[in-house]
Structure formats: structure tokens, C-alpha cells
């Protein structure tokens, strides 16, 4: 077996080292300028923009929830207001009804009172009329009766006598 080349092989060769150093430095400089910088920058920018977008989304979410809460509050308030307005309207209606009823009652009372007063008046007037007529009738009747009763003298005497008897002296 011939292993002489192995000997050559683990002995570093200065020419290769020099070439390697030169080539590596050139590659390093070129890649640093034209590859790593743009690539690393692109990665960084993308990460930043993603982080930005995420934080914006988070903010938007927060804003949304705030708006939602706001909306709910507004709706709640509106509902409350509506309830209040409805209640007021009801109250108003009730009070109006009450008032109307009261007024109607009062009116009816007044009308009743007036009516009864009128009736009273008419009654009084009719009574007065009746009295007047009754007086007339009574005078007429009395006239007729008297004319009949006092037609003979005996009856006149009897009557006088009765009247005289009736008169009591006390």
C-alpha cells in the first residue's frame, strides 16, 4: 500500500492557503455589500412591517371593541330615553284622561245642577201657576157653591148657626 499522498495531504500547502484567503476575502466583501446587506435588510423590514401590521391590527381590535362598547352604551341610553319618553307619554295621557274625566264630571255636575235648578224653577213656576188656577177654580167653585147654598133662607140660617157654633170663645 502506498500512503505517501496522505502525508502531502495533512501538510497545509501555503499556495492554497494564500489563494483561499484572497478568494475568501473577495467573496466576503462582495457578498456583504451585494447579498447579505439587502437580504438582511429585507428580512428586518419584513419583520418590522409584520410586527407593525400586527400591532395596528391589535390597535384596531381595541378601537373596535371600544366602538362596540360605545355603541352599546349609546343603544342602552337610547333605550332608556325611549322608555322615559314612553313613560312620560303614558303619564301625560293618564293625566290628560284624568283631567278630562274630572272636567267631564264637573261639567256634568254643573249641567245637572243647572238642570235641577231649571226643573226647580219650572216646578215653582208651574206650582205658582197651579196655585193661581186653583185659586181661580176655588173661587169659581166657591161662587157656584155659595150661590147654590145660599139660595134658600133656611140653609142660610143653618150655616150661620154652624159657623157661630164653631166659633169658640176661649
Amino acid at each position: 500500500m502506498n500512503f505517501y499522498l496522505l502525508d502531502l495531504f495533512v501538510n497545509p500547502d501555503s499556495g492554497t492557503i494564500i489563494w483561499m484567503i484572497i478568494i475568501f476575502i473577495i467573496v466576503w466583501v462582495i457578498l456583504k455589500r451585494f447579498a447579505w446587506k439587502p437580504l438582511l435588510n429585507a428580512l428586518k423590514e419584513r419583520e418590522d412591517s409584520i410586527a407593525d401590521a400586527l400591532s395596528t391590527a391589535e390597535k384596531a381590535k381595541l378601537e373596535m371593541s371600544r366602538l362596540k362598547a360605545d355603541n352599546e352604551r349609546i343603544i342602552r341610553e337610547a333605550q332608556k330615553e325611549r322608555d322615559l319618553i314612553l313613560k312620560e307619554a303614558k303619564d301625560l295621557k293618564n293625566s290628560i284622561l284624568e283631567e278630562a274625566k274630572k272636567q267631564a264630571k264637573e261639567e256634568s255636575k254643573k249641567i245637572l245642577a243647572e238642570a235641577s235648578k231649571k226643573i226647580e224653577e219650572q216646578k215653582a213656576a208651574s206650582i205658582a201657576e197651579m196655585k193661581k188656577q186653583i185659586v181661580t177654580f176655588s173661587v169659581d167653585i166657591a161662587e157656584k157653591i155659595l150661590s147654590q147654598e145660599l139660595s134658600d133662607s133656611s140653609r142660610q140660617e143653618k150655616m150661620i148657626k154652624e159657623i157661630v157654633d164653631d166659633i169658640k170663645f176661649n
Binding site: 467573496v27 451585494f34 447579505w36 437580504l39
Partner: peptide, 19 residues
């Protein structure tokens, strides 16, 4: 090295282009 430069410079250019 030539292969490396070709690959990574084109990647770098792509990175600049696709900002």
C-alpha cells in the same frame, strides 16, 4: 465561488427589488 456569487447576488437583487 462563482456559483455562490451568482446565487446570492441574484438573491440580494431580488431582495432589493421586492422591497
Amino acid at each position: 465561488v462563482v456559483l455562490m456569487l451568482m446565487i446570492f447576488i441574484s438573491a440580494g437583487k431580488a431582495a432589493q427589488r421586492n422591497k
